[in-house]
Design a protein around this nucleic acid. Structure first.
Lengths: 307, 307
DNA sequence: ACTATAGGTAAGTAATGCTTACTCAAAGGT
DNA sequence: ACCTTTGAGTAAGCATTACTTACCTATAGT
């Protein structure tokens, strides 16, 4: 059936001639000669093995077949034009789906979204919050914000900012549960985060202490829940400085020691082959300034030092 | 917006390559060389100013733009193929809309329709019954069966059969209302048909008589109603022989005189520019045999002659 | 009767699309 | 580690297609 389809480009001349009732006007519209239009339509008629126009003197008009075929041409070409236009719209107004943990979304990205939107009105951001590392091959996301060593095979990584950690608690908690020195936290509740259970192990190594055993454990299912628990005075948590700027400034939490830079960093991660790389990097650069603004505005020396 | 539409024929190679994930296979499908496919797709990419495929080694895969553009190509081409197919279907299974008076439809055409359908299974007939001459420029009909002199400007006419007229009445009526001679019908009811009021005038001239005045008139609104009235014994009507074959054979009516050929004939009428001329003439030839079969099967000498 | 006009046709030319021949890069099989 | 195979990209040349030019035809309008 497909084999004897007339060359699709002939539809263009036919549509113009049919709509304008004139080969001459069609030729003008298409910037070719009337003769070329005549030949193209003759070709189409030969392919269909039927005539499409009644040739009158100095005028052509569609016959019944022509009228029916005009519907073919119009439908086909309008489909092409509409689909093409919406394709171009999609391309020039890309949707960036970016995955991150809820805390980063709520504390850093979302509060500044209106600024990004005003800088890049064409780019539509879709923030996807996820607890764990998403699989780029399965999830329909364009990029992710990840804490790690920057080594994810097949993905392109861009460093956003280093990560400083410090023990945090609410001021109220400190008052009611005095801390002698952070090397001796026995008797205190240590707030853990699910999936990062060895953080306290590492922390104790950093602090050159070994007092983290025999403490009460409180395990929360996310970083945001851990911070909220600390804010409520339920114990001591490990806070990441770039994320806690507003909490520390507002006095919802205080740091108990000089922040320590950990080996992991925050990275912006995207597919190596992403066609949206350009706009994604626009977002990355903007995001980096947001992270650094947060971190620099946090006076990392304003902690209650029990070291 | 339309100006920078890529040449529509490029969609064909793109669709094939995208669906087959291979320029080589696409080339085979299109009966061209892989190089040609590669060049067409390169052209398309240059028009769109973006790449559509990730070129891997010995393999190509659509990137995100390519996936989006595949929808453009598929929609456009499937629209073309579907519309084209339904156009061809329409052409090869034409609908013939043919106008005629109800009597011709009911007595001649419709009883034989199943035969025509078996001879021409592709042709769909639409019988449109109409009391008066329809206007080909306004009504969506392809042809008409008309009684007349064959001279209708702008239309092509083909003679179907001459028309013989005779006075008819029911056998019962004749018994109850004896007729002396058809030159003297005084006292009889003459059944007229609306729109053909001068038929009796002409008939009297044919019969070389002048007795048609001072009779009771019965005016019916159609030929079929006039024949039914005669059948019911309501009076004498003017019957057209080609149409009354079954009625006469069944004894529903009898002729009262030797049928007389009138100047009008039955014609098959169509537009000079009709694109369905071929199938219409198929129908015309079939119709002619039907008319003649009817007429020849009527023994025009089997009348009750009062001349 | 003459002119102007729209379309059709034929021949020549410009443009395009295709093939051929070659290169390249990586995968697969010894 | 080697060579072979394979699919895609490229450049040059060729073949085909599509367009233009010039001329013809028919007719509507003057």
């Amino acid at each position: 059936m497909y084999k004897d389809l007339p060359p699709i480009q002939l539809l263009i001349a036919f549509e113009a001639a049919a709509q304008l009732h004139s080969f001459k006007l069609a030729a003008q519209a298409l910037c070719i000669t009337p003769s070329a239009v005549s030949q193209q339509i003759k070709q189409l008629e030969q392919h269909l093995n039927m005539s499409l126009f009644n040739r009158l003197t100095r005028r052509v008009e569609l016959n019944e077949y022509g009228k029916a075929y005009l519907r073919v041409a119009e439908q086909t070409l309008s489909t092409y034009r509409n689909c093409h236009d919406s394709f171009l719209y999609q391309v020039s107004n890309p949707i960036l789906r970016i995955s991150m943990i809820p805390f980063v979304a709520y504390e850093i990205v979302i509060p500044a979204l209106h600024e990004f939107k005003s800088l890049h009105p064409n780019i539509e951001l879709r923030i996807e919050t996820s607890m764990s590392l998403i699989d780029f091959d399965r999830e329909p996301v364009d990029a992710a914000i990840r804490l790690g060593d920057g080594n994810w095979p097949g993905l392109e990584t861009h460093s956003i900012s280093p990560c400083h950690c410090a023990l945090v608690a609410s001021p109220h908690y400190i008052t009611n549960n005095p801390i002698d020195t952070i090397r001796n936290l026995s008797g205190h509740t240590l707030i853990h985060m699910q999936g990062s259970m060895n953080d306290w192990q590492r922390t104790s190594e950093f602090l050159k202490g070994n007092t983290i055993e025999h403490n009460t454990k409180l395990v929360m299912d996310s970083y945001i829940a851990a911070m909220r628990a600390a804010e409520q005075g339920l114990g001591i948590a490990i806070g990441q400085l770039p994320l806690l700027a507003t909490w520390l400034k507002a006095g919802r939490l205080v740091t108990l020691n000089q922040p320590v830079m950990i080996p992991e960093q925050y990275y912006f991660v995207l597919r190596k082959t992403s066609v949206k790389k350009e706009v994604l990097l626009d977002f990355y650069h903007w995001l980096t300034t947001k992270f650094n603004a947060e971190f620099n505005s946090t006076d990392i020396n304003s902690h209650t030092n029990f070291a």
